Amino acid sequence: MNKNIYIIRHCEAGGQSSDSPLTEKGFTQANALSKFLSNRKVDRIISSPFVRAIQTIKPFAEDANIEIEIDNRLSERILSSSFYSDWMEKLEATFNDMNLMYEGGESSREAMNRIVDVVTEIEESDAGNTVMVAHGGIISLLLNYYDKEFGFERWKKLTNPDVYLLRITKNDAQYTRLWKG
Rank of each mutant, 00 (worst) to 15 (best):
L79A: 11
S80L: 00
S80N: 06
S81N: 04
S81A: 12
S81Q: 09
F83D: 09
Y84Q: 00
Y84A: 02
Y84V: 06
Y84G: 01
Y84W: 08
Y84M: 11
Y84N: 10
S85N: 15
D86G: 02
D86F: 08
W87R: 03
W87A: 08
E89H: 13
E89A: 15
E89Y: 12
E89M: 13
K90M: 05
K90F: 07
K90Q: 13
E92M: 07
E92I: 02
A93P: 05
A93H: 00
T94Q: 10
T94F: 01
T94Y: 00
T94D: 00
T94C: 04
F95H: 09
N96P: 02
N96F: 08
N96A: 13
N96H: 15
D97R: 09
D97L: 05
M98E: 14
M98K: 14
M98Y: 14
M98P: 09
N99K: 15
L100K: 07
M101Q: 15
Y102C: 09
Y102A: 03
Y102L: 12
Y102N: 06
Y102P: 05
E103T: 15
G104I: 08
G105S: 01
S107Q: 03
S108T: 14
R109G: 06
R109V: 13
E110N: 09
E110D: 13
E110L: 11
E110V: 12
A111N: 11
A111L: 06
M112S: 06
M112D: 09
N113C: 06
N113L: 01
N113H: 05
N113F: 01
N113K: 07
R114D: 11
I115W: 03
I115H: 00
I115Y: 01
I115M: 09
V116F: 01
V116S: 01
V116I: 02
D117F: 10
D117W: 10
V118C: 11
V119M: 10
V119W: 09
V119C: 10
T120G: 11
T120V: 13
E121G: 13
E121Q: 13
E121C: 12
E121S: 15
I122C: 00
E123H: 13
E124D: 14
E124I: 06
E124Y: 10
S125T: 00
S125E: 08
S125K: 02
D126E: 15
D126Q: 14
A127V: 02
A127H: 14
G128P: 01
N129H: 08
T130F: 12
T130V: 15
V131S: 11
V131A: 13
V133Y: 01
V133M: 04
H135Q: 12
G136V: 03
G136L: 01
G136I: 03
G136M: 02
G136C: 05
G137P: 08
I138K: 03
I138L: 15
I138A: 01
I139L: 11
I139R: 00
I139P: 04
I139G: 09
S140R: 02
L141M: 12
L141E: 06
L142D: 04
L142W: 06
L143F: 08
L143H: 07
L143P: 05
N144H: 14
Y145D: 05
Y145N: 07
Y146M: 08
Y146L: 10
D147R: 01
D147Q: 05
D147W: 06
K148M: 12
K148G: 08
K148Q: 03
K148Y: 11
E149F: 12
F150A: 05
G151F: 04
F152P: 00
F152H: 00
